[in-house]
């Protein structure tokens, strides 16, 4: 039996819920998070972890929608064009929201203008890995080998415009060598030919290659970051190897379409930053091979600043390389 006060309270709640959307009640229904890649990769997994944790804070479920295509442009375009009410947000990374400006001449959006960013939640540095019987043991030896052999050095990457391709282009620009590129569809195929010895190596994210370096089936060096990576304490940085200019940090973050109500944006941003202190989230991200950004590097404004500087940088790298068109 319902007692009267409770019934009144329930009624009042129902009426309140039916009132026009006010920021106070946001969010009142599930929030869709668009991931512009197929399920299962680091982008997808990190988004699911974020969605799960943010959902707990905001009291609504997050629905992950994988909209793969055009290197992330298809899903990101859908995110840009979504109704700006805060109920649709999206995932972007250094490739989709910075390098794409340089590599995709038909990019249907401008990451510097078209989004309200919620913040970066994960970064992962790049490094060079080679097959385990490769003659060079250190970055210096590798650079010497590359200069001596030129086209004889066979480096794999995961498709035109992929992060591994761009990292290779950046690295070989710095040492002024043009190796032979062997192109694969995705990291699984690339690492297969490194393990089998068909090619010499690749440039990729720590998140992808850490298991193979740890297991001893491939050798890593030239970590493109300031300090060594906690997961791979034995891998020296590029600075240690004498090439401090080689810095490539891939970041993953969230955005909302431009122009969502400021109060809703504030709530989303707040949640996206707060979850990074959640020990469960921290453990998940650490296991993925990522670093959670330092407090000063969190939040939407910082993300926009990083995007602006990364766009400029990749435009320059791609221009020097004589153009790279993303696949």
């Amino acid at each position: 039996m319902l007692r009267l006060p409770r019934l009144v309270a329930a009624l009042a709640l129902t009426i309140l819920a039916a009132l026009p959307v006010s920021a106070q009640n946001f969010p009142e229904r599930p929030i869709t998070l668009i991931v512009p890649f197929a399920a299962g990769g680091a982008s997808d997994v990190s988004s699911r972890i974020m969605g799960e944790a943010m959902g707990k804070i905001l009291g609504q479920a997050f629905i992950i929608e994988n909209v793969a295509g055009a290197g992330g442009a298809t899903g990101s375009l859908r995110g840009k064009n979504a109704t700006p009410d805060g109920y649709t947000i999206g995932f972007g990374h250094m490739g989709t929201h910075a390098a794409s400006v340089a590599t995709n001449p038909k990019l249907p959006f401008d990451p510097r203008k078209d989004f309200d960013y919620l913040g970066i939640h994960l970064t992962t540095p790049n490094l060079i890995i080679v097959r385990k019987d490769f003659p060079a043991k250190t970055l210096q030896e590798y650079i010497a080998y590359a200069k001596a052999n030129g086209k004889g050095l066979k480096m794999g990457h995961n498709g035109a415009g992929s992060l591994s391709h761009l990292t290779c282009v950046l690295f070989f620009q710095l040492i002024n060598v043009e190796p032979t590129y062997v192109v694969y569809r995705g990291f699984g195929q690339t690492i297969n030919d490194i393990l089998s010895g068909a090619i010499d190596g690749t440039c990729d994210l720590v998140a992808s290659v850490s298991s193979h370096v740890l297991g001893g089936s491939a050798r890593g060096f030239g970590l493109a970051a300031d300090t060594r990576f906690p997961l791979l304490p034995d891998v020296p940085t590029a600075t240690e190897g004498g090439l401090p200019e080689f810095k490539a940090n891939s970041w993953l973050g969230l955005y909302a379409p431009k122009g969502i109500p400021p109060a809703n944006l504030a709530k989303l941003r707040d949640a996206a930053v707060k979850v990074l202190d959640d020990p469960a989230v921290q453990k998940h991200f650490h296991d993925l091979g990522g670093i959670i950004p330092a407090p000063k590097d969190r939040g939407g404004d910082r993300m926009l600043a990083i995007i602006n500087s990364d766009v400029t940088r990749w435009l320059e790298v791609v221009r020097k390389a004589g153009g790279v068109v993303a696949q």
């Binding site: 399920a39 299962g40 990769g41 680091a42 997808d44 997994v45 972890i49 699984g188 850490s210 298991s211 193979h212 740890l214 297991g215 089936s217 453990k283 998940h284 296991d287 993925l288 091979g289």
Partner: peptide
């Protein structure tokens, strides 16, 4: 692989 990495398992 995605499922394994979530559980801190490194396929290999």
């Amino acid at each position: 692989v995605g499922a394994m990495t979530i559980h801190n398992l490194v396929p290999g």
